[in-house]
């Protein structure tokens, strides 16, 4: 079931809804050759996160919330959370997005990937009650003017992987999904995903090399 955006807007001030409509026009790009229909407008989620980061923009946040919160909730429910817990945790995840917007680097990861990592950590915390050590943060926080080509590529990774996922044989896709929903133990996880991960790895690897050069 789709999350009803109009319903949520009722709880907003009217001015906020108008602001959002204007914003969506401002930051969205239409897919080439597609008809001008709302559901074919590809929203630039990274631009919305930057609006939250730089201007604490509530309309941009509302748009992110409408898109990602119902997905996070579904993800958590498939990971075994009941609807109430999943709803609570999805709100936490979105609040974390607001709070940590300054850490989001659009040249490194798509918004969906970033939200996934927040949701995964929330799941470990809330459902598993376990601690998750995280790798050291690198001194390569988001640059004020990230390279637009890199940003584009990072944001498109998610779409490309989504297409590749959809094309996998059903059995293989089910295995990957089960791994990410916490249905498999670590020894049952098969590393061979059949997904084109090499290009993503190489892109990040190059960015890391550049960073190390700048540091030395």
């Amino acid at each position: 079931m789709m999350f009803d955006a109009r319903q949520a807007e009722k709880t907003d001030a009217p001015s906020s809804a108008q602001q959002y409509a204007a914003l969506e026009q401002r930051v969205s790009v239409r897919k080439e050759g597609s008809a001008v229909q709302a559901d074919q407008v590809e929203t630039d989620w990274a631009a919305l996160v930057l609006l939250v980061r730089d201007h604490q923009d509530k309309a941009a946040f509302a748009a992110l919330f409408r898109h990602f919160a119902p997905r996070v909730k579904a993800f958590l429910m498939k990971s075994g959370a009941d609807a109430t817990t999943a709803e609570e945790c999805a709100q936490d995840v979105m609040a974390t997005l607001w709070q940590k917007a300054h850490l989001f680097d659009p040249a490194r990861a798509s918004v969906a990937t970033w939200v996934f990592t927040i949701a995964r950590n929330r799941r470990i915390d809330a459902l598993r009650k376990a601690r998750r050590p995280e790798p050291e943060e690198l001194p390569w926080g988001p640059e004020p003017e990230p390279d637009q080509a890199e940003v584009m590529e990072a944001q498109q990774d998610t779409e490309r992987l989504g297409t590749a996922l959809a094309q996998l044989p059903e059995k293989q896709r089910a295995l990957i999904e089960r791994a990410f929903y916490g249905d498999l133990s670590h020894s049952e996880i098969a590393a061979e995903t059949g997904l084109p991960l090499g290009t993503i790895k190489s892109r990040i690897r190059l960015a890391l090399e550049r960073l190390r050069q700048q540091m030395s």
């Binding site: 079931m1 789709m2 999350f3 009803d4 949520a8 990602f68 919160a69 119902p70 997905r71 996070v72 909730k73 579904a74 993800f75 429910m77 609807a83 999943a86 709803e87 999805a90 990861a109 798509s110 969906a112 990937t113 970033w114 939200v115 996934f116 990592t117 949701a119 995964r120 990774d157 998610t158 779409e159 992987l161 989504g162 590749a164 996922l165 959809a166 990957i176 999904e177 990410f180 995903t193 997904l195 991960l197 993503i200």
Partner: peptide
């Protein structure tokens, strides 16, 4: 591998809030 998680989340069914 985290990008796989992102792609899954993006193509995820939705649960109404």
């Amino acid at each position: 591998f985290e990008a796989v998680g992102g792609a899954m989340l993006e193509s995820e069914d939705v649960a109404a809030m």
